[in-house]
């Protein structure tokens, strides 16, 4: 699979759809944390399971690559796949503070907050995508993939049930705090055709 199998129009529609979904999720996060959330321009990339760790590491850049905490959720529907939220370690420890918890939240409490935030973001992004693509998703409860480890170590471990996938990445960053979350959506090959058809329907309506 390559993104060449997407036309320029389809790729543009995909990025714009992701942009709107991300904006909606960003607004939810901003309300939750009572801070302005800076949004990135969404990126789409083809990825092979074997290269996933290297691809994600390159996207995160050197500052985050060394130690992240990752949460995974799968989603099902006409489009299926998995969502991985990656949090920088410094940001993780700020989360309790941002949410107004007493300082020195325990490890267990911090983990729970991360799962909650991931769940809220993934839910909002998928709802935003689903509304625009006219499709519904069900999604699993979030689970912790790894804590304060390198991206390679975290992503190498999880067994994946796909070979080729489309990777969509968006980044939520709190200014001037350290908190940031990279949200990575992985759509395996059979979902890519469904996505392409949904994008064509959208483009056909313009």
């Amino acid at each position: 699979m390559s993104l060449k199998s997407f036309s320029d129009d389809q790729l543009d529609a995909l990025q714009e759809t992701a942009n709107i979904a991300m904006g909606q999720a960003g607004a939810v996060l901003a309300r939750l944390l009572d801070h302005y959330v800076a949004l990135s321009v969404p990126r789409a990339k083809p990825v092979q399971a074997a290269d996933l760790a290297a691809t994600v590491s390159a996207m995160l850049g050197p500052s985050l690559d060394l130690a992240v905490t990752a949460v995974r959720q799968s989603f099902q529907g006409r489009l299926r796949g998995e969502a991985i939220s990656l949090f920088g370690t410094e940001g993780c420890s700020e989360l309790a503070d941002l949410l107004g918890h007493e300082s020195g939240a325990g490890a267990e409490q911090q983990e729970e907050l991360l799962l909650d935030v991931s769940n809220i973001l993934v839910g909002a992004v998928l709802r935003g995508l689903g509304n625009q693509l006219h499709t519904d998703f069900a999604f699993s409860a979030p689970t912790l993939l790894g804590q304060e480890q390198g991206v390679a170590a975290i992503l190498r471990r999880g067994p994946v049930d796909w070979v080729d996938a489309l990777l969509l990445e968006v980044n939520f960053r709190l200014d001037p705090r350290n908190f940031s979350c990279h949200l990575v959506l992985l759509l395996p090959e059979e979902s890519i055709d469904v996505l392409r058809q949904a994008l064509d329907r959208m483009l056909g309506d313009i």
Partner: peptide, 8 residues
């Protein structure tokens, strides 16, 4: 805008 935060 897709960024719909009140601060934006």
């Amino acid at each position: 805008s897709a960024d719909i935060q009140p601060k934006a």
